[in-house]
Simulated scan of single mutants.
Amino acid sequence: MTDSVPPESPRPAEEPSGSDPWAAPAGAAPALAAAPAPSAAPAAAPAHGAPYWPPYPVAAPVPRNGLGTAAMVLGIVGVVLSLAVFLFWVSWIPALLALVFGVIGVGHARRGVATNRGMAIAGVVLGISGLLVSVGAGVFVVARIQAVHDERRAEADAARARADAAIEAARQRAVKEKELADAQRKKAEAEQEKAAADERARRLPFGQSYTYGDGLKVTMAEPEPYVPRGTVYDLPENATIVQVKITVVNTGSEQVSLYGSGSPIVKDANGAPVFSLIDGSGRMKVLAGSLAPGQEATGLSAYALPAGAADRFSVEFSYGNGLQRKNVLWSGPSH
Rank of each mutant, 00 (worst) to 15 (best):
A269Q: 15
V133A: 13
A33K: 11
V77S: 08
D182W: 09
A35E: 15
S9V: 10
A170N: 11
V249R: 13
D198S: 12
L81D: 07
N270F: 06
A84W: 08
A159V: 11
F313R: 01
V242A: 03
E224G: 08
V315K: 00
P46V: 05
I246G: 02
G262F: 07
I246Q: 02
E177Y: 02
V232T: 14
G280D: 14
T2I: 09
A47D: 08
E151K: 14
L96Y: 02
W22V: 07
E177N: 11
L131K: 01
A159N: 11
V242S: 01
A40W: 14
A188P: 00
P46C: 07
A137N: 13
H108E: 13
V125G: 11
V85G: 09
P306Q: 09
A161C: 00
H149L: 07
A33W: 13
P6F: 09
P51C: 00
V85I: 12
A310W: 02
M72Q: 14
G332M: 05
A165H: 08
S301T: 07
S261I: 02
A156H: 10
A196Y: 03
L132Y: 10
A37D: 12
F140K: 12
P228K: 04
E15G: 12
G207R: 07
W330K: 09
K285P: 01
E14N: 03
I145Q: 10
V256W: 01
A35S: 15
A307F: 06
P306H: 05
A71R: 00
G68R: 03
W22Q: 12
A156F: 11
A169I: 05
V58E: 14
A174Q: 12
A165W: 00
I93E: 08
V142L: 14
D279Y: 04
A165V: 02
A310M: 06
A307Y: 04
A288P: 01
P264N: 07
R117M: 05
V80N: 01
R64T: 08
P306E: 07
S334D: 08
V125P: 06
A45W: 07
N250D: 13
S318T: 15
R325E: 09
N327S: 15
A35M: 15
Y52F: 02
S290G: 05
R160K: 13
V266Y: 03
P12I: 04
G289Y: 08
A310D: 15
